[in-house]
Computed example of a mutant assay.
Amino acid sequence: MDIIPKYEKQSLSDMVVSYVKNRILSGALKGGDRLIETDISSHFNISRAPVREAMRILNEQGLIAFSPRKGNHVIEMGPTEIMEVFEIRTSLETQILRKILRKQMIEEAHLHRLTEIAIEMKDGEQRCQNEEDRVFLFNTMDLAFHKYIWQLSGSVRRAQILESLFYQLLLAMNEDLSSLGILELKSEEHLAFVEVLRENELSAVVHAFHTHIRNYVRATLPDEEQYFCLDC
């Protein structure tokens, strides 16, 4: 059973955007990989116009770039740029967590939904046929977990920025898929975070989230982790 979704009920350009993002989620696309418009248009049997529009959208979201030598290609980031994205994500998501807790916006139903997502991160592995499916499952559930929190805050602009940053960080981690961690352990880590949220103690929630992100920084940039700035 292929867990990667089909592309239905979308505009042609949105379909191409989803296709590229799903290849990032599955680990198939890495920094510097070329995106050839003719190949994508042939894959979907569509004209190049919606493919070009999709490339424009992905460029605006900071996921692809264009150069005369390589054409459209997935962005490449060095350690300094990757660290900056980690720091920006940490800052914005911390703001969201503080807003949610200070305004008492989390209800038991929200915690239940987050628990379901974290459990699916582990239980869905039985449907995976290969490593690409497994990576896609983990990243999709990870995004769903954090996106649920972002949207719960009602902060639309932060949520939009954070989603783009999430994909940018995935491109960095796709260089070494072991940096994503083990499904069962990551599921437990997310479940533990739900329990911290349930306690509704702001300092504990922020500390747990910072530890969560630092684990990814350590796996992705082990030589630079000591310079990770939580309050930049």
Rank of each mutant, 00 (worst) to 15 (best):
M1V: 11
Y7C: 02
Q10N: 03
S13T: 13
D14K: 13
D14H: 10
V16F: 14
V16G: 00
S18H: 05
Y19W: 14
K21V: 11
N22V: 03
L25P: 02
L25K: 08
G31H: 04
L35M: 04
I36Q: 02
S41H: 01
S42L: 13
N45D: 15
N45S: 13
R48S: 00
R48L: 02
I57Y: 12
L58R: 11
G71M: 08
H73Q: 15
I75T: 10
G78Q: 09
T80Q: 05
T80P: 02
M83Y: 13
V85I: 07
F86G: 02
R89M: 09
R89E: 11
T94I: 10
L97D: 07
L97T: 05
R98A: 02
I100K: 09
R102V: 04
Q104L: 04
I106Q: 03
E107W: 06
H110I: 05
T115D: 03
K122E: 15
D123V: 10
G124L: 09
E125V: 00
Q126K: 15
N130G: 00
N130M: 03
E131Y: 10
E131G: 00
E132Y: 09
F136Q: 05
N139L: 12
D142H: 13
L143M: 13
A144T: 06
K147R: 14
L152T: 07
S153L: 10
S155L: 10
R157M: 10
R158Q: 12
R158C: 04
I161H: 11
L162V: 02
E163P: 07
L170Q: 13
L171V: 08
A172Y: 04
E175P: 06
L183M: 14
E184T: 12
H190V: 08
H190R: 11
L191N: 00
A192D: 08
V196T: 12
L197S: 01
R198Y: 14
E199Q: 13
N200L: 06
L202P: 07
H207N: 07
A208Q: 15
T211S: 11
T211N: 12
H212N: 01
N215W: 11
N215A: 11
Y216A: 06
L221S: 04
L221A: 03
D223G: 04
E224T: 01
E225S: 15
Q226K: 09
Y227H: 09
F228D: 04
F228C: 03
